[in-house]
C-alpha cells in the first residue's frame, strides 16, 4: 500500500525537465509545467520537437483508455473539432520502474468563461451560448452526449473568441448511463430528470454553466430544488434576455439543441431590436447610431450562422 501511494504521488508530481519516452511509439516529451490535476491523473504542458502539447498521465490505465476512446470517437466526427485534438497515446515506465499510461493532446490556451465575460463584458454571453449549442448539436447528431458539462471543462480561446471543450472524459453514447458528472450540473442531483445520456441532459447542464457564471458561485439545492433553480434564474441579471429558453431547458422541454439554439438566437435579436426601439424614442443621434450598429451586428451574426 505504501508503494501504491508513493507512485500516485509521482504521476501528479513530475518535475519540470523530466523526459518521457513512449514505450510503444518511442516519441519523446519534455515536461515543462503542471497545468492541473484531477481524479484521474495530471495534465502537463510538454514539448515535443519544439511544439507545445498537453500531456495527461496517470497510473490508472483503464480510465485513461476510456478517455482515449472518447477522444478518438470525437475525432471521427467529420470536419469538426469538438474536443482537443489527440496526438499520441502511449505508456511510460519511470526510471524507478512504475508503469504509467499517457496521452498527448493539442495544447489549448485561453481564459475561463467567467474571467472572459468579466473582462470583455457579459454581452458575450449570448454568443457563447450559441457556439456551445452549435457544438452540442453536432455532438448529439453523431450519437454522443457530453455528460460532464461544467465551467471547468470549458475554455475561451482568443482571436476570434471561441468557446472550446478541454475535457471530454464524461462523453457518453446516447441511451446509456451518464459516465461522469458533477453534482451541481447534474439534473439527477436536482431531481429534474434521469441520468440517461440524452440531449436534454446536456441542455440542463448548459443552463447550470451559465447560472454558475452569472452568480459567480455554485449554490445549494435547498428544500425545494426546482424552486431554487427558478429563483436563481430570475435573479441572474445577465441572463434576463434568455430566461424563457433557459427555463425550458431546466425542465427538460428541449429534445434538440438546434431548437434551443434557434430560440436563444431569437431572444438575442428580440432584445437588440427592443433596445433599438427604446433608443429611437430618445432621438439621440449617437444612441441611434449605436442601436443601428448593434442591429447590423445582429444581422451579420445571423447571416454567419446561416452559412
Amino acid at each position: 500500500m505504501m508503494m501504491n501511494e508513493a507512485s500516485k504521488k509521482q504521476a501528479t508530481d513530475l518535475k519540470p525537465g523530466t523526459q518521457i519516452t513512449g514505450k510503444w511509439h518511442g516519441k519523446r516529451y519534455l515536461i515543462k509545467k503542471k497545468l492541473g490535476a484531477g481524479a484521474i491523473g495530471a495534465v502537463y504542458l510538454s514539448e515535443a520537437g519544439g511544439q507545445p502539447a498537453a500531456l495527461k498521465i496517470s497510473e490508472k490505465g483503464t480510465s485513461m483508455t476510456v478517455e482515449v476512446n472518447v477522444l478518438k470517437s470525437l475525432g471521427k466526427v467529420q470536419g469538426n473539432r469538438l474536443g482537443p485534438y489527440l496526438l499520441d497515446v502511449d505508456d511510460w515506465v519511470s526510471p524507478s520502474g512504475e508503469a504509467y499510461s499517457f496521452y498527448v493532446m493539442e495544447y489549448l490556451q485561453g481564459k475561463s468563461l467567467a474571467s472572459f465575460l468579466q473582462s470583455r463584458g457579459s454581452e458575450w454571453t449570448g454568443v457563447f451560448m450559441l457556439q456551445l449549442l452549435e457544438d452540442l448539436e453536432k455532438l448529439h447528431q453523431s450519437g454522443w452526449v457530453f455528460g460532464d458539462l461544467k465551467t471547468d471543462n470549458l475554455l475561451v480561446v482568443d482571436a476570434p473568441p471561441r468557446l472550446r471543450w478541454v475535457d471530454v472524459g464524461g462523453t457518453t453514447k446516447i441511451g446509456r448511463a451518464i459516465k461522469e458528472y458533477t453534482e451541481f450540473y447534474d439534473r439527477g442531483y436536482w431531481g429534474m430528470g434521469s441520468r440517461k445520456a440524452e440531449p436534454s441532459y446536456d441542455l440542463f447542464a448548459f443552463v447550470m454553466v451559465f447560472l454558475h457564471v452569472s452568480h459567480g458561485k455554485r449554490f445549494e439545492k435547498g428544500v425545494n430544488p426546482e424552486r431554487t433553480l427558478f429563483k436563481k434564474l430570475d435573479e441572474a441579471k445577465t441572463l434576463v434576455p434568455y430566461r424563457e429558453p433557459l427555463k425550458k431547458a431546466l425542465q427538460g422541454r428541449y429534445h434538440s439543441s438546434l431548437i434551443m439554439k434557434q430560440e436563444i438566437a431569437a431572444a438575442i435579436n428580440h432584445t437588440r431590436s427592443r433596445r433599438t426601439a427604446r433608443q429611437n424614442k430618445h432621438k439621440s443621434p449617437v444612441l441611434l447610431e449605436m442601436g443601428g450598429i448593434s442591429a447590423l451586428g445582429a444581422v451579420y451574426y445571423l447571416i454567419s450562422l446561416l452559412f
Binding site: 510503444w24 490505465g61 483503464t62 483508455t65 476512446n69 478518438k72 505508456d91 508503469a99 499510461s101
Partner: peptide, 12 residues
Amino acid sequence: EELEPEKRGEIM
C-alpha cells in the same frame, strides 16, 4: 497492460 494502447482501447 501488456497490450499496445490501440488493442487495449478495443478491449476496454
